[in-house]
């Protein structure tokens, strides 16, 4: 219930109406959105019980490893009610045709399998918020100072997921496992998304804000 309370408000892409439609506009919109959503994610992480008790260095390491998984999981959850569309933001819903015209097809095709996977599981909001916190705590950063403290954070979030499933899904005793078994696909998808944006950064045609660049650099 605490994770539900700290869940951030809806986010809006607000594409620049003065820019001509196309590849540059679509990516400029997404990079600006990602930068603003990262600020929100950092604020959200601080409210996860136990996260702020970690050292500042470990908080940074977890976020630097997991930020794209969290961004992707947010997009995926927003898209669960749609058919083959991705809800990047409340006002930025992209179908395959739009994705093709705006140079977002690779990203679109990379994220959709994850949407299908969670649709099949009928993932609920309670499960989504818990899984998202688990993804952050389970980011496999190689730079963790206090491994025991991070393990305690993982354990408490894992326990929250088990409690949730114990209370709501007595008909499927394997549901916790099924949800956790989606995390490899989430990591794979986030890796593709990082690669996508990293190559855009290298091409240098799309403006990127500093935080987004900083987080991309941490993944380089």
């Amino acid at each position: 219930s605490h994770l539900l309370v700290i869940e951030p408000e809806k986010i809006y892409a607000m594409p620049d109406p003065t820019m001509p439609d196309g590849y540059i506009k679509a990516l400029t919109t997404l990079c600006d959105l990602a930068d603003r959503e990262l600020v929100v994610i950092i604020g959200w992480a601080k409210h996860i019980p136990g996260f702020s008790s970690l050292s500042l260095a470990d908080q940074m390491s977890l976020l630097q490893s997991a930020w794209m998984e969290i961004l992707v999981l947010n997009i995926v959850f927003r898209s669960l009610a749609c058919e083959e569309e991705l809800v990047y933001a409340e006002d930025y819903v992209v179908d395959e045709e739009h994705a093709r015209l705006s140079g977002l097809l690779d990203l679109h095709v990379a994220i959709l399998p994850l949407v299908r996977r969670y649709k099949k599981l009928s993932m609920e909001k309670e499960e989504f918020v818990t899984l998202k916190a688990i993804a952050l705590s389970n980011s496999d950063s190689t730079h963790i100072e206090n491994v025991e403290a991070v393990q305690r954070l993982q354990d408490s979030l894992h326990e929250a997921l088990q409690d949730l499933e114990g209370a709501h899904n007595t008909e499927d005793p394997r549901r916790t496992g099924k949800l956790l078994m989606t995390l490899p696909l989430l990591r794979q998808t986030a890796a593709k998304a990082v690669q996508h944006f990293y190559s855009i950064k290298v091409q240098g045609k799309v403006p990127m804000h500093k935080l987004f660049l900083e987080m991309l650099e941490a993944k380089a």
Binding site: L56, A57, M60, L63, Q64
Partner: peptide, 15 residues
């Protein structure tokens, strides 16, 4: 750490 100064600053902010 100097390279990640915005993340560092946002984590230190109390809000």
């Amino acid at each position: 750490k100097e390279k990640h100064k915005i993340l560092h600053r946002l984590l230190q902010n109390s809000t």
